[in-house]
C-alpha cells in the first residue's frame, strides 16, 4: 500500500500547526493515489503523549523518543529519517519548510536519493507525478514543477501557512510505533547550545510578519498601541526613518534604503506614507496592508489592501479583534 510520510515538528505545547497542514496535504495527495496510509514521524524527548495526540490524523505514528532528541537537531532527524524511509519506502515524504526543515530536508533527500521539491504552496498528484507550485524569482513568479513518483519516492517541503490545517478525521486512531534510537546519532555534528537573541536587538530582517510604524504615530507615547498590536499578531515592530530620527525606536528597526532591508511575508504599514526610501527596504514581495489617514498616500499604490482612517481608532480595534480570534 502507498505510504505518505509526514514529519511532524513539535512546538513547546504539542505538535506545531504545520503538522496538521502537512496531514491535510498528505490526505489530499493520498486521495489521488487511491488506497494509501498516511504516517507521521515524531521526534523528541518525552513526546509519547504528544504523539498519541497526533493519532487521530494519521494511520501510523512513528515515535522517536530519546534524550538525544531533546533539542531538534537537523542532522539527528536526517539520520533517523533516512533509516525510517529506507525501511518504510514512502512514496511521498512531506516536511515543513521551516528553518529546521531547511536544515535537514535537502541532506535527507541527497542521502535517500529521492528528488525534493521545496517551499511548495500547492500540491497535486496526477498521472504518476507530483505537481507543486512554488514561488520563484523573489516572489515575482510562481513555478509549477513536477517530479515522477517513482520507486525512490519523492519529498516535498511545504510552506507553513500555505495549506489549510486538517480537521481531525473521524474514526480509528493511528497505530503508534515506538522506534529505537541508536546511540551516537550525529558524531560529526554536535549541538553546543541555543542562543536567544539579545533583548531589544530584534533582527527584523528575519521577521515573517512586521508591523511597521511611521510618522503618523505622532508621539512617542503612542507607540504602545503598535507594540501591543505586534504582540497580538506575534509580529515584530519595524518603522520608517522619522521614528528613528526622533530616537523613539533603535536604528535596527528602521526599514528603508538608509535602514535595513526586510523580506517578511506580511507587512503591515501603519501611518507610513510609503516614500521610495522606505519602500526600497521592503523586498521579497510581501503581502502589504496599509493604514493611513491620507487616501492619496503613496503607500496605497504599493499595498495589497488599504484602510483609510484614523490609526488611533483602528489599531486598538484591530488588536482587540486579533486577540479575540486567537483566544
Amino acid at each position: 500500500m502507498r505510504k505518505i510520510l509526514v514529519v511532524a515538528e513539535m512546538g513547546r505545547a504539542g505538535p506545531d500547526d504545520s503538522a496538521f497542514e502537512l496531514a491535510a496535504a498528505a490526505r489530499a495527495a493520498g486521495k489521488a493515489l487511491g488506497e494509501h496510509r498516511v504516517a507521521a514521524a515524531v521526534f523528541g524527548r518525552g513526546v509519547a503523549e504528544a504523539a498519541r495526540g497526533l493519532a487521530p490524523w494519521f494511520d501510523d505514528v512513528f515515535v522517536f523518543d530519546d534524550p538525544q532528541l531533546e533539542i531538534p537537531d537537523g542532522e539527528a532527524w536526517r539520520a533517523l529519517l533516512a533509516l525510517l524511509i529506507a525501511r518504510e519506502r514512502p512514496l511521498l515524504t512531506l516536511i515543513a519548510h521551516s528553518n529546521h526543515g531547511m536544515d535537514y530536508a535537502p541532506a535527507l533527500a541527497g542521502q535517500a536519493g529521492t528528488p525534493l521539491v521545496c517551499d511548495c504552496v500547492a500540491l497535486e498528484v496526477r498521472d504518476g507525478r507530483l505537481f507543486a507550485v512554488r514561488s520563484v524569482y523573489g516572489g515575482k513568479l510562481n513555478a509549477r514543477v513536477s517530479v515522477a513518483l517513482g520507486d525512490a519516492g519523492c519529498m516535498a517541503t511545504l510552506r507553513p501557512g500555505a495549506f489549510p490545517a486538517a480537521p481531525a478525521p473521524q474514526g480509528a486512531g493511528a497505530a503508534i510505533h515506538a522506534e529505537a534510537v541508536p546511540a551516537a546519532l550525529t558524531p560529526r555534528r554536535r549541538c553546543l547550545g541555543t542562543v536567544a537573541p539579545e533583548p531589544g536587538a530584534v533582527d527584523i530582517t528575519q521577521s515573517a510578519v512586521l508591523v511597521a510604524v511611521g510618522r503618523g504615530i505622532e508621539e512617542e507615547e503612542n507607540l504602545g498601541i503598535i507594540h501591543s498590536l505586534a504582540e497580538a499578531l506575534r509580529a515584530d515592530v519595524a518603522c520608517s526613518r522619522p521614528v528613528v530620527d526622533k530616537k523613539w525606536l533603535p536604528r535596527s528597526r528602521q526599514v528603508g534604503t538608509s535602514g535595513v532591508t526586510v523580506k517578511p511575508k506580511v507587512y503591515l504599514a501603519i501611518g507610513i506614507s510609503g516614500s521610495f526610501q522606505h519602500m526600497g527596504g521592503v523586498k521579497g514581495g510581501p503581502f502589504i496592508a496599509a493604514i493611513n489617514k491620507d487616501p492619496a498616500a503613496p503607500i496605497f499604490s504599493v499595498a495589497d489592501v488599504g484602510i483609510v482612517g484614523d490609526l488611533f481608532e483602528l489599531v486598538p480595534l484591530l488588536e482587540e479583534k486579533v486577540r479575540e480570534l486567537k483566544g
Binding site: 526613518r241 534604503t257 526610501q277
Partner: peptide
C-alpha cells in the same frame, strides 16, 4: 539620494 548617512539632522 540612495543611501543616507548617519546624522543628527537632515
Amino acid at each position: 539620494l540612495f543611501s543616507e548617512v548617519e546624522c543628527e539632522a537632515r
